[in-house]
């Protein structure tokens, strides 16, 4: 009779608290933008703003799967400060196959706080220029900042600094090259100056003239009255109004 009562209580507790079985499986999954890689043996480094709980440093929490949901054999390593996890495939990635890097929400910080979601980063061998060609190692920031690392592709792949306020790091190093490309084009009644910028530049000006934002990090200014050989100083500003980079262009 006592056994039946205990069994009944267990069943009841499972009905009332289904989360006991679900655990972290019920948390949300966030899929980041797909990345194109060039190195078929590319390793990924996940940087956290706090040391992670060593108990959660395991292959179930950091893994790579192919498009048929088969797990790719990979090695894990943890940095000395226990904030960086590197996952390296044991065999090369295949072309035309999309792979998925998973960082499970089961990962805990040293102070036992769970990640609040599963993070999935799809990637594929391709020719996109989002990747740093010189870097074999890429930092993936946790959580929902999929583009933050694309802004620093020209600097480094693994030196993201944790935000002082965020629990987990968001890659925030401003790239050295913020005015990525400045071009001029002459039309019969005005000149066209277009500036491709990094993620960090939110405003571009030439003197008092503000460039029009066209989307996708492209700013354009149509300016009448410029003379051939005239020098124009173009400034890229951050969201807080700080000048991130200045460039001089000569009107053709």
């Amino acid at each position: 009779m006592k056994k039946i009562t205990i069994l009944f209580m267990m069943v009841c507790s499972l009905i009332v608290f289904p989360g006991i079985l679900q655990g972290q499986a019920s948390i949300k999954e966030v899929t980041l933008n797909e990345r194109a890689i060039q190195d078929p043996m590319k390793s990924w480094t996940i940087t956290f703003s706090q040391p992670i709980n060593k108990g959660t440093f395991k292959k179930q929490n950091f893994l790579i799967k192919d498009d048929k949901k088969r797990q790719v054999k990979a090695k894990l390593s943890l940095s000395k400060d226990e904030r960086k996890v590197t996952i390296t495939p044991e065999s090369p990635y295949k072309k035309e196959v999309t792979y998925y890097l998973y960082v499970k929400g089961n990962v805990k910080s040293g102070s036992n706080q769970f990640l609040n979601e599963h993070t999935v980063l799809p990637f594929k061998i391709g020719t996109a220029s989002k990747e740093s060609k010189s870097s074999n190692e890429k930092t993936v920031t946790n959580a929902k900042q999929p583009t933050s690392s694309s802004g620093k592709t020209s600097s480094s792949g693994s030196n993201s600094k944790p935000s002082s306020n965020s629990k987990y790091s968001t890659s925030s190093k401003t790239p050295e090259k913020n005015l990525v490309k400045v071009q001029t084009k002459k039309h019969s009644h005005f000149d066209e100056i277009s500036v491709q910028v990094s993620d960090y530049v939110t405003k571009v000006k030439a003197g008092s003239d503000e460039f029009e934002y066209k989307g996708n990090n492209l700013f354009v200014l149509y300016k009448p009255g410029l003379k051939s050989g005239e020098k124009i100083t173009v400034k890229g500003y951050s969201m807080s109004g700080k000048v991130l980079e200045t460039k001089e262009v000569v009107i053709p």
Partner: peptide
């Protein structure tokens, strides 16, 4: 209108 947003470094 299209505007560009970039979260500031070190600010929540």
């Amino acid at each position: 209108k299209i505007i560009k947003f970039a979260a500031e470094d070190g600010k929540a």
